[in-house]
Amino acid sequence: MAVTQLPTSGEPTRSRRAKGVNWKALQPYLLSAPQTLVFLLFLVIPIAAIVVVSFWNFNGFAMFPGFTLNNYLGIFTSKVYLATYLNTFKFAFLVWLVCLSISYPVAYFLSFHIKNPKLQTIWFLICTVPFLTSNIIRMISWIPFLGREGLINQALMGLGLTKQPIEIFLFSDFSVVLAMVHLYALFMVAPIFNSMIRIDRNLVSAAEDAGASPFQIQKEIIVPLAAPGIAIGSIFVVTLVMGEFATMRIMSGGKSSSVGYLIKNQLDSLQYPLAAANAIVLLIITLTIVFAILRAVDIRKEL
């Protein structure tokens, strides 16, 4: 069928007309140009701008081009900043841990115990739908449960377990983690589910026939083969939590801080260079975590 063929190897054969060869070579670039341009203009250049501005000077009203390391020195020498960074790590770690321990069994149940593909899709969609609704509303929806007069306290007092309403449920670390897990669990469930449904069921049967215990099957077969999904989910959850501030603000009642929240506050008081320096430190830390995950797990076959 193909008369003239491009020299690319392993490609499906396509017929080409000789006069269109140049156009053909250009075609992928023209087609991917709009999307690439979006990322150059609105991702690469902005981050470059943040890097530049992070070395600028500022006073209470404006910023000035220049070169100073003071913004960075301020971050590394301040106890308040250090505590904020540690707090952000703490939440990233806790949310990641809880998301993983919930998502793994959920994904496993969906992929291994629901055998009917149609039911599998329906249940997966049921899990997905809440994630397509407003994040802020989903945070607020915990208030009737967690507040001083919330359902949990009403239940505890009704059962006589406590006389005073317990204050720690809302506006605490607990509520922040709970809300974040509620918001981001799907980002963990979906990639793990995606890895697990591709696992060859014969491997599991063979292991069972050879006398492997359920624990051994998990450890030797399922976990290693689901690892790319776990890695992708972890990257999602960690980066989402690292850049967060709305959940932190609403669910901690302003008591707890994160780097994102810090950046937002610095911008509100027009300290752009300081906010930029914090943003760059945050970016470097996040990328380090991501690369550490990528070094540990090869995700290429998932992409």
């Binding site: 991702l43 902005p46 701008a49 980066t239 501030f245 996040t286």
Partner: peptide, 21 residues
């Protein structure tokens, strides 16, 4: 990789960067 990296960059940076530019 340019496209994927947009998911990995913490969202607050994108907002801040576009604001500055």
């Amino acid at each position: 990789y340019l496209t994927i990296s947009s998911l990995i960059v913490p969202s607050i940076l994108v907002s801040l960067g576009i604001g500055i530019v």
